[in-house]
Amino acid sequence: MDFPDEYHRILWWLLVATRGGQKRAMIMEILRDNPENINKIAEALKSNYRTAQHHIKVLLDNGIVRKEGDGYGCIYFLSDYYQKNFHMVREIIEEKK
């Protein structure tokens, strides 16, 4: 399936071309099913808080996730576009293999 070049390019860069792509893909998978805070994301990744925070910031800065609330209890969601088009994420991951 063809996707808008900009969305595909951003996702490919974030999930395949840079270090941490695998963790970012895992975060997207987590948020696809349930919004979570950074503590829960770090726990699911079996990673520390700062690592999860870094990857969430990258995804947030690129419009992949959005947040509700502020501070420690802030909850993160997959953006509406990526929630509706999650198959694009899976296809990029499959391309990598």
Rank of each mutant, 00 (worst) to 15 (best):
V16Q: 05
R50I: 03
K84A: 15
L60W: 13
E91V: 08
H54P: 00
T18P: 00
N85V: 03
N34Q: 00
E68S: 09
K23T: 04
I64T: 04
A17V: 01
V65F: 13
A42S: 14
N62L: 14
R9Y: 06
I41G: 02
L15N: 13
V58E: 14
G69M: 07
D70W: 10
R90H: 00
I38V: 12
R24K: 09
F77Q: 02
V65A: 05
N48R: 02
K46S: 13
E68L: 10
E36T: 01
E91S: 08
N48H: 06
L60T: 10
L45Q: 01
N37H: 08
V58T: 15
E29K: 13
K96I: 07
K84Y: 12
E43A: 03
I75M: 15
L45T: 01
C74A: 14
Q53L: 13
A52P: 01
V16W: 09
I10G: 10
F77K: 05
N39L: 08
D70G: 11
S79D: 14
T51C: 11
R50P: 00
L59T: 09
G21N: 06
I93V: 15
I30D: 00
M88L: 13
R66L: 11
R24L: 02
K96Q: 13
E94M: 13
N62Y: 14
P35A: 10
E95V: 02
R32N: 08
K40V: 09
V58P: 15
N62P: 10
F86Y: 15
H55F: 13
